[in-house]
Amino acid sequence: MRPDKRAASSGGLLFGVGAYGAWGLFPGFFPLLKPAGAAEILAHRIVWMALLMVVVVAALRRLGDLRRITGRVWLLLGAASALISANWVIYIYAVNNGHVVDAALGYFINPLVSVALGVLIFRESLNRAQAVALTVAVLACAVLTLELGAPPWISLGLAFSFGFYGLVKKVVPTDPRVSVGIEAALAAPFALAFIVAGAVAGQSAFLSNGPWHAALMVLSGPVTAIPLLLFAVAAQRLPLVSLGLLMYLTPVMQLSWGVFIGQEPMPPARWLGFALIWIALAVFTGDAILRTRRESTRQDLGEPTLDEGKQR
């Protein structure tokens, strides 16, 4: 790997860890927004995030980028906005209704969706260790799914909505900060209309639960925007295979939260799936470390790296 590509990959890894680590802490935040329902919380996330992103994009002097966006990219950003909104409302419902473990299962399945999209659409390849890690992860997801005894609709909804969101973000050429802002802005009119309608009908929890609750609802915007910005950068710098396997960080944190803090049931089959996921992570991480060391050694010796050898 050339130095510039290696630097981009390393930077992408840091951004990815930041995004998935932040998402892993979300089960501790959204219950604080009760008694607001999932739809109202989603609407406020979108509106406050949109306002924040307008300030960010303006401060970075990137408003001019809007004029250079083609019709195709606007359609892609519209699709991304719809997909991430669907993902958010499913996740908020799960966390605020005692289904954190189900949400974690969704994000265990999500990397499989991303890896499959990377292989099928972008023709990304798997080396032997990555294939082993993915096989173990498939087995873990099968064990966890069978344990539920019913189709895991929450899990599948989260996995596929975010998997396709990552696919769209991979092909959007717009600056990540601008694209995230546009996604929020496209959904903001619908979210604002929902908030106004709820207030008129007397069903809004925003201003009826004290200033602390209102402040938390406003804070949901920045809490939403920051990991999305980190993810947008990581999606452009990392292959979908690496990005997909890195996603395991979030469900590991969420599952730990659901079990040890939320006291959700954890029968032996779920513990088995949890152990298999860690095995998959260990194989993937070990392979990544070994490959990095081998490529560094080749560069030190003046030999072509694996990527350069393939190009010759």
Rank of each mutant, 00 (worst) to 15 (best):
Leu207Glu: 07
Ile154His: 04
Ala38Asn: 08
Val136Asp: 05
Pro176Ser: 11
Val241Leu: 12
Val57Asp: 00
Ser155Pro: 01
Asp307Pro: 05
Ala282His: 08
Leu139Phe: 10
Pro267Met: 04
His213Glu: 10
Ile289His: 09
Phe26Arg: 02
Thr292Trp: 14
Glu303His: 12
Leu14Asn: 07
Ala269Gln: 08
Pro268Asn: 08
Ala50Met: 07
Arg298Gly: 06
Ser296Gln: 15
Leu144Tyr: 02
Val136Lys: 06
Ala86Ser: 14
Gly18Met: 02
Asn96Glu: 14
Gln130Thr: 08
Leu243Tyr: 11
Gly302Val: 03
Ser10Ala: 15
Val17Gly: 03
Ile154Ala: 05
Leu144Ala: 14
Arg2Met: 10
Lys170Cys: 02
Leu272Asn: 07
Ala79Glu: 06
Gly309Gln: 14
Ile279Asn: 05
Gly273Asn: 06
Ala103Arg: 02
Ile90Tyr: 07
Pro222Ala: 11
Gly157Pro: 07
Phe164Met: 05
Ala39Gly: 07
Leu77Trp: 02
Ala215Phe: 13
Val233Leu: 13
Val233Pro: 02
Asn97Met: 04
Gln311Cys: 06
Cys141Asn: 13
Asp300Asn: 10
Val57Pro: 00
Ala94Met: 02
Arg2His: 12
Leu167Asn: 01
Ala205Met: 11
Gly71Phe: 09
Gly149Ile: 05
Pro227Asn: 02
Ser161Val: 05
Ala19Gln: 01
Arg68Phe: 09
Ala58Pro: 02
Val89Thr: 15
Val138Asn: 06
Ile226Glu: 00
Leu33Val: 05
Glu124His: 11
Ala185Val: 12
Leu144Glu: 13
Ser125Glu: 13
Leu117Trp: 12
Val89Glu: 06
Arg123Lys: 15
Phe29Trp: 05
Met247Arg: 09
Trp271Gln: 12
Arg177Ala: 13
Val168Tyr: 10
Gly12Gln: 03
Pro222Glu: 11
Thr305Pro: 10
Trp257Lys: 03
Pro27Ala: 00
Ala82Glu: 08
Glu303Trp: 13
Val17Met: 10
Leu229Phe: 02
Ala205Cys: 12
Glu40Gln: 09
Glu40Pro: 02
Leu134Trp: 04
Ala140Gln: 02
Asp287Glu: 14
Thr145Asp: 06
Gly262Glu: 10
Val223Phe: 14
Met53Val: 03
Leu42Val: 04
Ala193Pro: 05
Gly24Arg: 05
Asp65Leu: 10
Leu281Phe: 10
Gly166Asp: 11
Leu240Trp: 10
Val178Cys: 06
Ala140Glu: 02
Leu255Pro: 00
Gln311Lys: 14
Asp175Gly: 07
Trp74Asn: 12
Leu66Met: 12
Arg68Pro: 03
Gly106Val: 00
Leu167Gly: 00
Thr305Tyr: 03
Val57Met: 03
Gln311Glu: 14
Tyr20Cys: 00
Ile289Pro: 04
Pro222His: 11
Ala188Lys: 01
Arg62Gln: 14
Val241Thr: 15
Ala288Gln: 15
Leu60His: 08
Asn97Gly: 07
Ala129Val: 07
Leu243Ser: 00
Met247Glu: 12
Phe26Cys: 01
Ile154Lys: 03
Gly258Asn: 00
Trp153Thr: 09
Gly210Phe: 09
